[in-house]
Write a protein that binds this DNA or RNA. Sequence first.
DNA 1: ATGAGCATGTAACATGTTACATGATTAA
DNA 2: TTAATCATGTAACATGTTACATGCTCAT
Lengths: 189, 189
Amino acid sequence: MALRHAVLAALLDGECSGYQLTKIFDVGVSNFWYAAPQQLYAELAKLEADGLVAGREVAQQGRPNKRVFTVTEAGVGELAAFAAAPPKPLLIRDDLAVRVHAVDLLDPGPVIAQLHERAEEAAAKLALFEKMLIRLRGDLDEESFLREGDRIGPYLSCLGGCRLEREIRDWCLHTARTLSERAARTGRE
Amino acid sequence: MALRHAVLAALLDGECSGYQLTKIFDVGVSNFWYAAPQQLYAELAKLEADGLVAGREVAQQGRPNKRVFTVTEAGVGELAAFAAAPPKPLLIRDDLAVRVHAVDLLDPGPVIAQLHERAEEAAAKLALFEKMLIRLRGDLDEESFLREGDRIGPYLSCLGGCRLEREIRDWCLHTARTLSERAARTGRE
DNA sequence: ATGAGCATGTAACATGTTACATGATTAA
DNA sequence: TTAATCATGTAACATGTTACATGCTCAT
């Protein structure tokens, strides 16, 4: 079980509801874990049943009430045990790269368009992550924060997210340009 | 269905057996898709039943016989339809980044060790990918190959793999160093 | 009144993982 | 003879995805 630990780690940043969690996991990629909304509701229910998170009702004005969850001591214990165990290899599945791999036998048009779209998404995510870094480190510069800050985990994982998105953006643009230039040449010949 | 397309794309590089496929998918990460060996055998059987790949028996001396598979015309059609459809978002799940995200509440020792291990794996994969690039482009330089080569898909996806592994290596080393320095300081204080 | 965002789920189905099972050859 | 590599699967189980379902409030 691994989603479970990703959820616990996310909840360390502050109690939140299932719906807020889906925003953190972004209906797509947080910076290191993909999970669909329905998975998160189900996992929260299981975590609560196992006593690893505790929920409490919060009344809201002008909106439906919500249940927010906090990691319990048992939850932290679970995370500690998880962290000491050997990690599973990085799981990556990239639909778009499959297309690129096979592109020589394919119509490059749609693939080029998809690469541009993905590049924009990556750029948007990068901008978001960079803002998050600024928010996390407050008025310290990065070096001082990493030396003296008291909660650097999210900052470090976010730095990883930045690296990833930057490379995705650049790779998509480079690949799209390469394919476009070839398409232009074969068009002329 | 998506594994199916990854397998078809991989088979474009030349017919191969189930076992050889598991090597290409590496019992871990190829450069853009993770799949376990058992998945591949199962998927090949399904692809053959659907007529998207064709298998033939190859007798070997000194080794068990094997069945090798080739993509059929229907298989290429399937890939073409896939490539024209909107791509699914990148799926990423990183066990190690979850630990880093939660590291402030954890014993950093094991996490630092895991980061070093991951960095070495990434470096090894990077070296492998770089060799593959040289093999793929033959005696052309990269620019000429990308302009004039007749099968650039695998080269482009491999370039993506290089970028990814390089960033993983560097992020792991930077993160491990940051955590080590803090651990040294809190030890002294 | 229409749609978007907040808020939470269930149920059916597809996919992926783990453990088990077999058996040959070659190198140490 | 022991382990490693080649070669291929089945079966049970765990996980993840998709479609459906509900109902509130706020802005247009």
